[in-house]
């Protein structure tokens, strides 16, 4: 029977703290980039003009149908060949995760916008609003409310995906777990601790999405 020894992990709290900051850092970048770019792409998917629709659709299909780890490694190993400068682990991982999240959230935005009844467009246009005004003032505020559970789920996925940055040696929680495990020969405690930290971060968020879903179901 294994004798658990978490003291060796607790002795490395500072390393885990550095990792947690790295995780939160890349999470924040990808959350902002992914969800805002997703809105742009989602509007493109919703557009009637084929010059907007087809590029947006190609983007969504490509990034949804390739693994995000492949994208990260592509940006890290392949992209620098085409660029006059190198790509850092943080940049490569952020690009991969953000573009992937943009593709997935684009479909959430499009679905949310499409779910708003035609009458709302009618009401907005009848008082003289143009497309942009109607979208910003009438359609998006209602659609965003309906999309909240799905967007929160996306945020959770982004948080989980941030561990993939360790594949290009970006310093985040899992990477620090690896470091602690190899320095102290305590992989059981090190990886268990990392898993527990993620669970503690994400569990409240997951419960929050359940609350959102229930509230939305109650509203409609």
């Amino acid at each position: 029977m294994h004798r658990w020894d978490f003291a060796s992990v607790l002795a490395n709290t500072d390393a885990l703290l550095v990792g947690a900051i790295g995780t939160l850092h890349i999470f924040a970048i990808c959350l902002v980039l992914g969800l805002s770019l997703g809105l742009v792409v989602g509007l493109g998917r919703y557009a009637r003009s084929r010059w907007l629709y087809w590029p947006a659709t190609a983007f969504v299909e490509f990034f949804r149908n390739t693994p995000v780890l492949v994208q990260i490694l592509w940006f890290y190993f392949a992209l620098p060949i085409l660029l006059p400068f190198s790509v850092s682990p943080l940049e490569a991982a952020s690009l991969g995760i953000s573009l992937n999240s943009a593709a997935f959230s684009a479909e959430i935005y499009r679905g949310g916008i499409q779910s708003i009844e035609r009458g709302q467009w009618d009401g907005a246009r009848a008082i003289g609003m143009n497309w942009a005004q109607a979208m910003r003032r009438i359609i998006l505020p209602q659609a965003l409310k309906r999309m909240m559970p799905a967007l929160t789920n996306r945020a959770i996925e982004i948080f989980k995906m941030s561990t993939l940055a360790s594949a290009v040696a970006y310093v985040e929680l899992l990477q620090q777990g690896k470091l602690i495990a190899s320095l102290n020969f305590n992989p059981i405690e090190a990886y268990t601790a990392v898993a527990v930290i993620f669970f503690v971060f994400l569990w409240p968020l997951v419960q929050f999405t359940y609350v959102l879903e229930r509230r939305l179901a109650g509203d409609e």
């Binding site: 009401g123 907005a124 008082i127 009438i138 209602q142």
Partner: peptide
């Protein structure tokens, strides 16, 4: 057209009020 629609008011069967 947006100018024209300001000068011609419209009321719908389904109201189309903005719920938010």
């Amino acid at each position: 057209l947006t100018l024209v629609r300001q000068r011609i008011g419209m009321v719908f069967q389904q109201f189309n009020l903005f719920p938010h």
